[in-house]
Computed example of a mutant assay.
Amino acid sequence: MYKAKAYAAKSETSPLAATTIPRREPTEQDVQIEILYCGICHSDLHQVRNEWKEVMPTVYPCVPGHEIVGRVTKVGAGVTKFQPGDLAAVGCMVDSDGTCPECKAGLEQFCANMTLTYNFPDKHLGGVTYGGYSDSIVVDERFVLKVPGNLDLAGTAPLLCAGITTYSPMRHWGVTKGKKVGVVGLGGLGHMAVKFAHALGAHTVVFTTSPGKKEDALRLGADEVVISRNADEMKKHVGSFDFILDAVSAEHDINAYLQLLRRDGNLTMVGAPEKPLPVSVFGLIFGRRSLSGSPIGGIAETQEMLDFCGQHNLTADVEVIPIQKVNEAYERLLKSDVKYRFSIDMASLKAE
């Protein structure tokens, strides 16, 4: 065991502050990584403030962060895929049982015994796992990913959550050239969805309530931008979409988007509104449309996504901040005051 520098919250009302945490020495299958950048996900804020206490109560001290990019510093004797000096990444998971049908299908994100990167029982040291707001992390080789060398590392970090969360359903529902794809909401998730849909060759339409986002949506790769409050604009697209990705976490009228799907079209939710959304079943029955949800992807698919990003030179649009500004970043996140993700330069932790 060794001590690592980190930023942690001591309670649901206390700010994140410098501390030290225990990390295990690498075992035979482990990879030790010096963390260079860590993205800030909205779920970090929810977890730190114990806003998911009914489902996933926070154990303090809490060290968030599951969008991790760094450099390998040490490997266990049994590690075959990595060596010191390699660029590596870690996402939302750090372990699973490896034996259940989900794991055998490469869908570790659905494993009942999955271990999340932070605030989950730590089978090695006891207590809970600690995330990427730290100078280093030790992870089983099976859950470490290779980072293409041509990608900007600060912009790569959010790919480990925002990237795979939008890429996975597009691959599952067959987004390819010739398909018409809608993206609802242009935020941290939505902006990556636009980039992926465009790179996959789809005709990409962004739905937003903010006319001021039109120019940015087109810059990111959208072919069209629809102001969703404009009923006439919405009517033009009725029954025409193969796939719609909904990245909005606020209350909104989902039926307005179901009507835009063609026969056998699908709408997938990746945003998670706090209250249940009313769904018109007739909107699904007529047209054999489907409504689904999707979390992150499995490890193999996450690697595929990173490789795809390497081929197309895709990264998230980020604002890089020092760790000392993380609490300010959380407040700005609540106001959607970032284009489009924060990425923490972990070199700033050395100053603590």
Rank of each mutant, 00 (worst) to 15 (best):
L220H: 03
Y167I: 03
R171G: 01
Y330I: 07
W173L: 02
Q83D: 02
E25I: 09
L314G: 03
T268G: 00
I296V: 15
G287S: 13
W173D: 01
F120W: 15
L151F: 07
G221M: 06
A17F: 06
E233I: 14
Q259P: 02
I164E: 03
P295R: 01
G201L: 07
T156M: 08
H237M: 06
H237Y: 14
M93K: 08
A89D: 00
Q311Y: 12
V144G: 02
S210E: 12
F82V: 05
G85A: 08
L284V: 05
I321Y: 11
E328W: 14
S348C: 10
R49T: 07
I33D: 01
A9H: 02
M346F: 09
G106C: 08
L189W: 09
E274C: 06
N119V: 07
Y167S: 03
T99D: 11
G212L: 05
P322K: 12
F241Y: 09
A231N: 15
T302C: 07
I164Q: 02
P278N: 06
D246M: 04
E102N: 13
S240T: 12
K275P: 08
F342I: 09
G310M: 10
I296Q: 04
M269A: 03
G182L: 00
I321D: 05
T20A: 05
S348P: 01
T117L: 09
L87G: 10
I296L: 12
A17T: 07
T156F: 11
K325S: 14
V184F: 04
A112M: 10
V326W: 03
G91I: 01
L284P: 06
N313C: 12
S292H: 12
S290N: 13
L151N: 05
P61I: 04
L189Y: 06
N327D: 12
R142K: 15
L145A: 06
S249L: 10
K213P: 09
N150H: 07
F207S: 00
L284A: 10
K146N: 13
V94I: 15
N119Q: 14
L284E: 04
P169Q: 11
E34P: 00
P273I: 04
V138K: 00
L284Y: 10
V63W: 08
L36P: 00
V226W: 11
A6M: 04
E328K: 15
P278H: 09
H42V: 01
D307F: 04
G221L: 05
Y60T: 03
Y340V: 02
E319R: 15
S292Y: 06
V144H: 02
A154I: 07
L291M: 10
E12P: 10
R24T: 13
Y2I: 08
K235A: 15
S14D: 15
V320G: 02
E12G: 10
L245E: 00
E331C: 11
E51C: 11
Q303M: 10
T99K: 13
A77V: 13
Y257H: 06
M269T: 00
P61M: 05
T208I: 08
D122C: 14
V281D: 05
Y7N: 00
